[in-house]
């Protein structure tokens, strides 16, 4: 029966981790713009050649 205490405390700490994760995401600005990041998938160019091409900018 003591297992119940352990499991509940364990789930409580998991819930705390979840809340912390949400807070972290909010502070990182993950919820600031829910619209435009959907378009970032279209940006499918090769990053490394890109930066080489444009060093003269």
């Amino acid at each position: 029966m003591n297992m119940v205490f352990v499991l509940i405390l364990l789930s409580l700490s998991l819930a705390c981790v979840a809340v912390w994760a949400v807070f972290w995401a909010i502070n990182k600005g993950q919820f600031d713009d829910l619209d435009s990041p959907a378009y970032s998938i279209l940006d499918d160019e090769n990053e490394s050649t890109d930066s080489l091409d444009n060093t003269d900018n």
Partner: peptide, 9 residues
């Protein structure tokens, strides 16, 4: 959103 995509790029 296309505008922000363009600026971003």
């Amino acid at each position: 959103s296309a505008c922000s995509w363009l600026l971003n790029k």
